[in-house]
């Protein structure tokens, strides 16, 4: 039996923009968020920013998580934020994970990425941050 729900589950989109074909990390995070009671829409590999934003709106998610290893983050992440703004959906928080140099991370945060996790981040940390971001968004 599913435990009685006091509030509706957080819906989160996990997507991997960029061309690299590794989604192990994204899948591990997706499972951790599921185990924390979230409904994780897993959009898969090689998503364009347009596809990611479209999926986020259709699925009416509370939160978007992006994962990237290919180094194209400085092009792709800001594009997602721009598209969200254009759709009037900039209230949906976006967090990111991957191999992102400190300098880039600072710039991305200034642009509006709410949290960035490097390879050293624990799943606990990611889950807790995701919960906070989703609950305080609306």
């Amino acid at each position: 039996m599913v435990p009685p729900r006091t509030r509706s589950p957080i819906r989160v989109l996990i997507a991997k923009p960029g061309l690299d074909g590794h989604d192990r990390g994204a899948k591990v995070v997706a499972r951790a968020l599921r185990d924390a009671g979230m409904e994780v829409i897993y959009a898969g590999l090689r998503q364009t920013p347009e596809e990611i934003v479209r999926a986020a709106l259709e699925e009416d998610v509370d939160l978007i998580g992006l994962s990237i290893l290919s180094g194209a983050h400085m092009a792709l992440f800001p594009r997602v934020l721009t598209l969200l703004r254009k759709e009037g959906a900039s209230k949906i928080p976006v967090f990111a994970g991957g191999i992102i140099p400190d300098e880039d991370a600072r710039r991305l945060k200034r642009l509006g990425i709410r949290a960035i996790f490097g390879p050293g981040a624990t799943l606990d940390e990611i889950v807790r941050t995701a919960e906070q971001l989703a609950r305080h968004a609306s």
């Binding site: 599913v2 589950p9 997706a30 968020l33 599921r34 924390a36 897993y42 959009a43």
Partner: peptide, 21 residues
């Protein structure tokens, strides 16, 4: 949905290919 956490990984979207617009 997981009977333990109530959470879920919804993965059917992966197969969808269509124009984003």
């Amino acid at each position: 949905s997981s009977p333990f956490s109530g959470g879920s990984v919804l993965g059917d979207r992966i197969r969808l290919e269509r124009r984003a617009d």
